[in-house]
């Protein structure tokens, strides 16, 4: 019934028996463009079967603060990698300081991200939470900014101090953004 020329079936190694990989991300920035790297990497890590924790600190608090998480902005200022659309020509830095430019740049970036069907920050966090990521808020930042857990996305597990974060990231790979 079977032919002799066929090779034995190769079954992909999905690493089910491999030791659990654990990755912790630290989100310290509240700029739109700096919110995405950790979210995208965390998504990749989760779909690769890794255990994921995300610790939000300093300006990264804006990513989980319900008052700000859908209002993150992107500024051209200080970003020398800004080009004219579809060109390698740099946009002069001074333009970034003109009134309305941050709003315009934010709108453009959001559109480019949406065109790839990548969700906005609130939906992205909900998706990661659904996939099993654990989200943590930094105690010092919460105190500094006068926030409470009620200000934050419900998916945030808890407010923890740095010692607790160091403890929970034991044995994990840590990526600081």
């Amino acid at each position: 019934m079977t032919t002799t020329e066929t090779a034995p079936a190769v079954v992909p190694d999905f690493g089910d028996d491999a030791e659990e990989r654990k990755i912790c991300f630290i989100c310290s920035k509240g700029n739109l463009d700096m919110a995405y790297p950790a979210l995208i990497m965390a998504n990749g890590a989760l779909t690769e079967g890794a255990e994921v924790d995300i610790f939000f600190t300093f300006w990264g608090m804006d990513m989980i603060n319900k008052g700000t998480w859908d209002k993150l902005q992107f500024s051209m200022l200080g970003n020398t990698a800004m080009h004219m659309p579809g060109s390698s020509k740099h946009i002069p830095q001074g333009l970034g300081g003109l009134p309305g430019m941050t709003g315009y740049a934010t709108k453009m970036l959001k559109k480019q991200i949406a065109d790839l069907d990548v969700p906005e920050v609130p939906e992205f966090l909900q998706m990661l939470h659904d996939m099993g990521a654990r989200l943590w808020a930094c105690k010092m930042s919460v105190d500094m900014m006068g926030l409470t857990k009620d200000d934050m996305y419900e998916g945030v597990e808890d407010i923890i101090n740095v010692n607790e974060f160091i403890e929970l990231s034991s044995g994990a790979q840590v990526i600081f953004v």
Partner: peptide, 27 residues
């Protein structure tokens, strides 16, 4: 991708992790 299966296919992400554990996208 997992996101597309969830947004276009209407199958929640959580469910995909139950049906195809650990590495749902590849599995």
């Amino acid at each position: 991708t997992i996101r597309r299966v969830s947004t276009v296919g209407g199958i929640p992400t959580k469910e995909l992790f139950v049906l195809f554990p650990k590495k749902p996208a590849k599995k």
